[in-house]
Amino acid sequence: MLSRKLMSRAAAFIRKSQGSDDDVFLELQRERVPALAEQLADEVDVIDLGVHTGFSVHMKSVDEERIDANPKVETLLEALRDGEYDYLVAWDDTRLARDQFYWKLKRAAVLSDCLLEFVENPPEDELTFRVQRAVGSDVKRREIKKSQAAMDAREQRGDDHGRPPFGLCYDEDGRRWIPDRESREFATALEVIRLRETGRSWRDIADETGVNRSTARGIYGRRDRYLEEAETGMVA
């Protein structure tokens, strides 16, 4: 395909919904998506979100992680509107967004004469394409409702929910956070609290315990819970 400008530009967009940053599919995207972009354009900007949700405010609440709230995506959208790119390249359409936000990106691209190119092309039939996206969004919407209902039930029972903090794990019933006795993290958390109570700086605490400052602050913010679990363990 011939470039449409003397110096053409492409945005290579990379994202995966779940997993870890060293995931095989992410590595494949990081190899193939920029490679396709380089075939199409003279200059390539890589926009790598790593592991990040593909849903926007259309499907998520305003205080949740959302693709439309990501600064890199906001910058991309503005760049598309300003006509800075000739091509927007991704593995497939769902990497750009999994809900209606996709159409916002596409509209910005179309109005600025930017072509969308994919490593794996969506169905050529527009109706099939729209049906697939609608079904995917509906399935996710149902999952969100079920998840919210389960979370509400846990809160009504007084259960803990979410990922356990540093040094804690779920009990056998999966309802309450308890000290993780199979690792030394709980003891380390208590040491973080002790050091902070003696006036040590976050930097010193990080150096002595190996716990980064952000995690250390989180531990200290939950110090009542850690100390309560420690006391319960001693009584038991």
Rank of each mutant, 00 (worst) to 15 (best):
E155H: 11
A109F: 05
Y102Q: 15
G158Y: 03
E78A: 06
R142A: 14
P123V: 11
R81I: 06
A97I: 01
K72H: 03
G167I: 01
A79C: 09
R81Y: 02
E64A: 15
V139N: 14
D63P: 09
S183W: 01
R176Q: 02
G136N: 04
A150L: 10
K104D: 05
S147T: 12
E126K: 15
S61L: 09
A79W: 03
G158K: 08
M151K: 15
T75D: 01
Y85M: 10
Q100A: 06
C114D: 10
D63K: 05
H161V: 14
L127V: 10
S137I: 14
A108Y: 05
E84H: 07
S183H: 04
Y85V: 11
R175P: 03
Y85T: 04
D68F: 00
K72R: 04
W103K: 11
M59P: 00
L76T: 05
D180V: 06
D173W: 02
A79H: 15
D159P: 02
R163N: 11
R142H: 07
R95Q: 03
T94M: 15
R81W: 01
D92L: 05
G162E: 12
E117Y: 08
H161W: 14
E126H: 06
V139M: 02
R157P: 10
V62G: 00
D99Q: 02
S112W: 03
D92S: 09
V119P: 12
E64V: 00
L77P: 04
L115T: 11
E143M: 14
G158V: 07
T128Y: 14
V62D: 01
R181N: 11
H161F: 12
T94S: 15
L115Y: 09
A150T: 08
V139Y: 06
D82L: 12
V131Y: 15
D180M: 03
Q100H: 05
V131T: 13
L80C: 08
R142Q: 12
D159M: 08
A150H: 12
R107G: 11
D92E: 08
I178L: 10
L80P: 08
S137D: 15
D82N: 13
E78P: 06
D63F: 01
R154V: 04
C114V: 09
E172H: 06
A90E: 09
D173Q: 09
R107E: 11
D93K: 10
Y102S: 05
R133H: 13
A134I: 08
E172C: 04
G83M: 10
D92F: 12
S61D: 04
D99C: 05
S147P: 08
S137T: 03
R130A: 13
F101G: 00
M59K: 00
E124W: 11
Q156I: 12
R81Q: 07
V139F: 12
V119R: 10
E182M: 01
H58F: 01
Q100K: 06
E143W: 12
G162W: 11
I67F: 00
Q148T: 14
L96R: 11
P165Q: 10
E64N: 03
S61Q: 11
E117T: 07
Y102E: 07
M151W: 12
V62N: 00
D125N: 13
W91G: 09
E155D: 04
V62F: 00
R107Q: 04
E117M: 13
R66F: 00
